[in-house]
Computed example of a mutant assay.
Amino acid sequence: MISCGVDEAGRGPMFGPLVVGAVYCDDDSVLKRIGVKDSKKLSPGQRERMYDEISDSVMHWCVVPISAEDIDSKMKTQSLNMIELDLFVEAVSAYGADTVYADCPDVNTERFGRIMESRLDGRKVVAAHKADALYPVVSAASIMAKVTRDRMLDDLRKEFDVDIGSGYPSDAVTAGFIEKWIKDNGCAPKHTRTSWEPVRKMLSARKTTSLDDW
């Protein structure tokens, strides 16, 4: 029996991509030996080590990133949960699995699982909150997604040649970077989720300041 775990990294940030990871295996004992757990409970060094071990040990794995710009575009007609579900389905469809374990973003796990099953030709889907702490195959997927997103953020730091922080609204470095960029340029920097409320407030404040100056 082949199991697939699917999870995301970067759902909440106002800067940078969201990345979905999927891992497929027929025996999760190898994942237990690696020591996988929820990626948020691991240090960057531990995640990097496990990323390499997972990629060398499992049957198949993949990641599906979506840019901030594409998130903004899709948010005009879809909820973030449905965007994430679409990405889950794309990742899970890459390789065959008998059962899919998904870290559920929806308050209604049964509904989320039912919709996923309908999109996956009836393959069994187990959708659960905190699935990355319950199922090793989901823990592994969370690690692949998190490391991939962290590497993408490293590329963005090189692109801007400045510290951009973690991308989260609560990160003062990220907030300061975006706010200064908006102040200096009148628009948000590339890779910013302009549909996020904190960014909308920054853009609105910049517009108000410009009108006052005029």
Rank of each mutant, 00 (worst) to 15 (best):
Asp163Glu: 13
Pro13Asn: 07
Glu84Met: 14
Glu8Asn: 08
Pro65Ser: 03
Ile71Trp: 03
Val23Gln: 00
Pro198Ser: 03
Gly5His: 06
His60Asp: 00
Glu110Ile: 08
Ala172Asn: 09
Trp61Val: 00
Val58Ala: 05
Glu8Cys: 05
Ala140Cys: 08
Pro44Leu: 05
Glu197Leu: 07
Cys62Glu: 10
Val162Pro: 00
Met1Thr: 14
Glu159Lys: 12
Ser3Arg: 10
Gly10Cys: 07
Ala205Met: 06
Asp56Thr: 05
Val92Asn: 04
Leu80Met: 15
Gly96Val: 09
Ser93His: 05
Lys40His: 05
Asp38Arg: 04
Gly113Ser: 09
His60Thr: 00
Lys76Asn: 09
Glu48Cys: 01
Ser79Cys: 05
Ala91Trp: 00
Glu110Tyr: 11
Cys62Asn: 11
Trp181Asn: 11
Ala172Phe: 06
Asp7Ala: 10
Ile115Lys: 13
Glu179Lys: 15
Ala22Ile: 00
Ala131Asp: 02
Asp27Gly: 10
Ala175Arg: 15
Arg49Ile: 13
Pro189Val: 08
Ala102His: 11
Thr209Lys: 14
His191Ser: 06
Met1Phe: 12
Ile34Pro: 04
Glu8Pro: 06
Ser204Glu: 14
Met202Asp: 08
Val147Pro: 00
Ala188Gln: 04
Met202Leu: 15
Gly45Tyr: 01
Met50Ile: 05
Asp150Arg: 02
Lys201Trp: 02
Gly96Leu: 07
Asn108Gln: 12
Ile164Cys: 04
Asp7Lys: 01
Gln46His: 02
Ser118Glu: 14
Tyr95Lys: 07
Val100Phe: 09
Thr109Asn: 12
Leu156Arg: 04
Ile115Cys: 04
Val23Glu: 01
Phe15Glu: 10
Tyr95Val: 01
Asp86Asn: 14
Ile143Ser: 00
Pro198Thr: 01
Phe15Cys: 07
Met50Gly: 02
Gly10Pro: 09
Lys180Ala: 11
Val199Asp: 02
Glu90Ala: 08
Asp163Ile: 11
Ala133Asn: 10
Thr148His: 08
Asp26Pro: 00
Asp213Arg: 14
Cys4Ala: 15
Glu84Gln: 10
Arg151Gln: 15
Lys201Tyr: 01
Lys190Cys: 12
Tyr168Lys: 13
Ala97Gln: 03
Asp171Lys: 07
Glu110Lys: 14
Ala175Leu: 14
Asp132Ser: 00
Val147Phe: 00
Asn185Trp: 06
Phe160Met: 08
Asp121Met: 11
Met152Pro: 01
Ala140Pro: 08
Ala131Ile: 02
Leu203Arg: 09
Phe112Arg: 10
Gly12Gln: 10
Ser55Lys: 14
